[in-house]
Design a protein around this nucleic acid. Structure first.
Lengths: 164, 164
DNA sequence: CTAAATCCTACCAGCGCGGTCGGTTAACCG
DNA sequence: CGGTTAACCGACCGCGCTGGTAGGATTTAG
């Protein structure tokens, strides 16, 4: 699996918050029951979203969480990044290396990793997909859930410039 | 990390085979030494590639492995698939579901997983990236690196330009 | 004050990953 | 033939991460 359940739960949480009318907070308990997820674990998940500034919170009775921005302005790139950490296809990619990565197995002979070319393309593909989807897309999708599976796929023109 | 080191090692192995002149097999030992990888582990990795029909083998003295097809005809999609199994962003995606996935946490209320829309897009992004890259691309990339005699990443990670 | 909620830290079982080991079979070479 | 090389196979194993729990401390509405 590419993404862990942190991402799954976190995205669901965000969608759930996006479905709520603005103005009052939603408690984690309500979300946990609606989605059938363990409350205690959700706490850890939402903490990441909060630290990333994607949701805001109020403590105490009648407290809860709400989106820090309108769903239209939240790219799923930010959400997944907050939940999973940096999108890195491979070890070499973890930190924003300035230059000269040397991914441990790299031979000190002339050439560098040829694989890096591949992982770079894949990383680009993933990030583009995430950036092109907003939370509002998912909220809308969840609203007309019981309809026939309409072709919701690439709503932004076409396959973009993914280098054919 | 999105891909395990199986993918890393396997892709390197394929590149190494692609660099060899055709006609005679290359032993795993040679590959292991060239790339600095554990031989015993490489055996497991190459077994997957063989079972997928991407490489062929000859046993006995002077045996070894070679590409089953010309590098130009091998899409990295096939390679990664053979090494990592199906490209599935999430549990729900593991098997070729006809319809109605019901990913365990899916609420039996009206709507289906909104997250599925997201994971589908991501999966598409990954697979497209992989399909658009052939083994020959990587082989050529690795050759460019050694001809100049200088590191491949000479221009501040600008190699993404070659990716497009 | 009390209940409801966020917040925080520590802890734990299971499992997949990366890797090793020992052995068997097959082919070439002298 | 007999030795050597190298593919093939399956069992095993430590470690770290994932998914999840436990228990408490803090904040706030009523």
């Amino acid at each position: 699996m590419i993404f862990s359940s942190k991402a799954e739960y976190g995205v669901r949480l965000m969608v759930e918050l996006g479905r709520q009318p603005p103005g009052h907070p939603t408690s984690l308990k309500a979300v946990a029951e609606a989605e059938g997820l363990p409350l205690a674990y959700l706490e850890q998940v939402v903490a990441r979203l909060r630290k990333a500034g994607l949701v805001m919170s109020a403590r105490g009775a009648h407290g809860g969480y709400w989106l820090a921005s309108p769903a239209e302005e939240i790219s799923m790139d930010e959400v997944v990044q907050a939940l999973e950490g940096a999108i890195a296809p491979m070890e070499c990619f973890v930190n924003e290396h300035t230059e000269r990565v040397l991914c441990s197995h790299e031979p000190d002979a002339g050439r560098g990793c040829a694989t890096k070319l591949l992982w770079t393309r894949v990383q680009g593909g993933i990030i583009r997909s995430l950036q092109q989807t907003t939370l509002a897309d998912l909220v809308e999708f969840s609203r007309r859930g019981e309809h026939t599976g309409s072709p919701v796929f690439s709503r932004r023109g076409e396959h973009t410039a993914t280098a054919a």
